[in-house]
Amino acid sequence: MQNFNQFVFNSLLGDEQFVRWAKGEPCSNPEYWASWKTQYPDQGREFDDAVKVASALSFAAPSISDQEIAYMWQNGVLRKNQDRSRKKIAPSVLLMRIAAAFFLPLLLTTAFLYFNQARLQKQYSAFVAGQSGKNIAVQAPIGTRTVVDLPDGSKVWLNSGSRLTYPAFFADNQREVRLEGEAFFDIEKESKPFLVQNSGPTVKVYGTRFNVNDYADEDHVVVALEEGSVALDLKGKEAFLHPGEVSVYHRNEHSLSIAKNDLEPLLCWKDGKLIFRNTSLDEIVRVLQRQYNVVFEFDDPSLAGYQYNATFRNESLEQILQLLKVSAPQMQFEYTKAYLTKDGKQVKGKVVVKRKKI
């Protein structure tokens, strides 16, 4: 029989999302845990035992949170207790020793959590207090998209060139993040609100799916609600969004408008698509600059107002420029790819939009 891999066992119990999944609670990427044994067949025993322990914790110590369980395992508190407890038990029969090797770790961990909840929570609270004020910043490089798993199990998709800042641990009364750029949020439902700070109205939700576009080079901050409800706080005044509605905060006028809208062009970016409906070339260019890390220049400024209806699915920039040219034969796009200078500096790619000479 293959030796038990204690490291794998401990790593699983030190993962908050695994603990949530094992307890039958909502977690990020449940398909990953469901297929774990298929991907790692040699570690099935460790996985099964970890599931048993996490399941036991759910009824033995209901007031200890998933984060607390993961923290205690990561920091060896429970493992040290198990080691001490094992030393006190000396079965005289080999059969009892074999049974104890499988059962006692689970039993002792459960009993330890049940009788030591107050001390564990105090230790965990001290740890969280020491982490308060420490923020994590995640940025999606130009031309890429990034997925972020937040401490509460919520998931955030960051669009190209966007930045999300959030605390290592959320406060007891609210969950607050700051966004620069664009992100799609899938928020875990909790009693404490989730706040998204940006350059427009503060977005306040409890559990919902929505998109915020707050790129600095745009004139508006746009919030699109897919499901649930959203409250928008603008200088102490609240407005509410319902599914299928879009809010537009006008930076210059400091005003807010809300209307029903087609959400697909606003949300499709996270699936690798770009959809434009009666969109000016000037607007399209700003999106392409962020997505492909290039600079556009208009040789003839009047071309910027040309309207397009187009859908792109993971096409290269060259392919997109060719499609734009087909739709507007009077235009031509001169594309110079990015390159390195002799001293090793990178020069961005450049696209010059010109009116085609007849």
Score class of each variant (00 low, 15 high):
E68I: 07
E68T: 15
E68G: 09
E68R: 10
E68A: 15
E68Q: 14
A70D: 09
A70I: 12
Y71W: 15
Y71G: 05
Y71F: 15
Y71N: 05
Y71C: 08
Y71V: 04
M72Y: 14
M72S: 13
W73G: 15
W73F: 15
W73Y: 15
Q74M: 09
Q74K: 15
Q74T: 12
Q74C: 12
Q74F: 08
N75V: 05
G76F: 11
G76W: 13
G76N: 13
G76L: 08
G76P: 11
G76M: 09
G76V: 12
V77F: 14
V77K: 14
V77Q: 09
V77L: 15
L78P: 03
L78M: 12
L78E: 03
L78G: 09
R79W: 15
R79C: 01
R79N: 04
R79P: 01
R79D: 10
R79Y: 13
R79G: 00
K80L: 02
K80V: 00
K80D: 10
K80E: 07
N81L: 06
N81Q: 09
N81T: 02
Q82N: 13
Q82E: 12
Q82I: 11
Q82M: 09
Q82L: 11
D83T: 03
D83L: 01
R84E: 06
R84H: 14
R84G: 00
R84F: 10
R84Q: 12
R84L: 13
S85E: 12
S85N: 11
S85V: 07
S85A: 07
S85R: 14
R86C: 00
R86L: 12
R86V: 01
K87E: 08
K87P: 01
K87L: 09
K87T: 06
K87F: 04
K88F: 00
K88Q: 10
K88M: 06
K88T: 04
K88G: 05
K88W: 00
I89C: 05
I89E: 02
I89S: 06
A90Y: 01
A90F: 04
A90H: 05
A90Q: 11
A90T: 09
A90I: 09
P91W: 02
S92N: 10
S92E: 14
S92L: 09
S92Y: 05
V93R: 04
V93P: 01
V93M: 06
V93H: 07
V93G: 01
L94H: 02
L94E: 12
L94C: 07
L94M: 05
L94P: 03
L94Q: 02
L95M: 06
L95G: 00
M96K: 05
M96Y: 04
M96P: 00
M96R: 08
M96T: 00
M96I: 00
M96L: 04
R97P: 03
R97N: 10
R97E: 10
R97T: 05
I98V: 14
I98N: 02
I98D: 02
I98H: 03
I98T: 05
I98S: 03
A99Y: 00
A99V: 00
A99D: 03
